[in-house]
Lab assay of single mutants.
Amino acid sequence: SAEDNLGPLPENWEMAYTENGEVYFIDHNTKTTSWLDPRCLNKQQK
């Protein structure tokens, strides 16, 4: 699965689903949400 390739979410991040079944990500560090997987963003920065 995609999660196996990317590994676990960063600390204090949570994956959630909208009512429509779309995946989004919650950053409890900054109390924000994102459509972008933080694991993908980390890979792009390196």
Rank of each mutant, 00 (worst) to 15 (best):
39 R>P: 01
31 K>L: 08
40 C>M: 15
14 E>F: 03
26 I>N: 03
26 I>R: 06
14 E>I: 04
13 W>C: 08
27 D>C: 04
18 T>L: 08
19 E>G: 12
37 D>R: 05
33 T>F: 01
15 M>C: 08
30 T>M: 06
39 R>E: 02
12 N>Y: 07
6 L>I: 09
39 R>H: 01
4 D>Y: 04
29 N>M: 07
35 W>K: 04
28 H>Q: 06
33 T>P: 01
3 E>S: 10
41 L>K: 13
46 K>P: 00
3 E>N: 11
24 Y>H: 03
17 Y>F: 12
17 Y>M: 06
18 T>M: 07
13 W>D: 00
25 F>R: 01
39 R>G: 02
46 K>T: 13
22 E>F: 03
30 T>Y: 05
27 D>N: 07
23 V>M: 14
12 N>H: 08
46 K>D: 14
14 E>Y: 04
6 L>P: 10
34 S>N: 02
43 K>H: 14
2 A>T: 15
21 G>M: 08
32 T>E: 01
42 N>M: 11
16 A>H: 05
25 F>H: 01
17 Y>T: 15
28 H>P: 03
23 V>S: 09
43 K>P: 14
8 P>S: 10
24 Y>W: 03
21 G>R: 12
14 E>M: 05
17 Y>C: 11
9 L>G: 01
30 T>P: 00
34 S>V: 01
40 C>W: 10
4 D>I: 14
31 K>Y: 06
13 W>R: 02
32 T>V: 11
5 N>V: 10
24 Y>T: 01
8 P>Q: 10
13 W>G: 01
22 E>W: 03
15 M>R: 10
29 N>E: 12
11 E>G: 09
2 A>E: 11
9 L>R: 02
13 W>H: 05
11 E>A: 12
17 Y>W: 14
26 I>G: 00
4 D>S: 14
17 Y>K: 15
4 D>C: 05
2 A>L: 14
42 N>L: 13
8 P>D: 06
37 D>M: 01
36 L>Q: 07
1 S>A: 10
27 D>R: 00
6 L>N: 10
4 D>W: 06
35 W>A: 04
19 E>I: 10
9 L>V: 04
11 E>V: 11
21 G>E: 12
3 E>C: 07
41 L>N: 15
4 D>K: 10
13 W>I: 09
34 S>Q: 05
27 D>E: 08
39 R>M: 02
23 V>H: 08
15 M>I: 09
34 S>P: 00
29 N>T: 13
44 Q>G: 14
14 E>S: 09
46 K>Y: 08
8 P>F: 04
5 N>K: 12
28 H>W: 05
45 Q>S: 13
29 N>S: 11
6 L>H: 07
24 Y>Q: 03
19 E>C: 10
24 Y>V: 03
14 E>R: 05
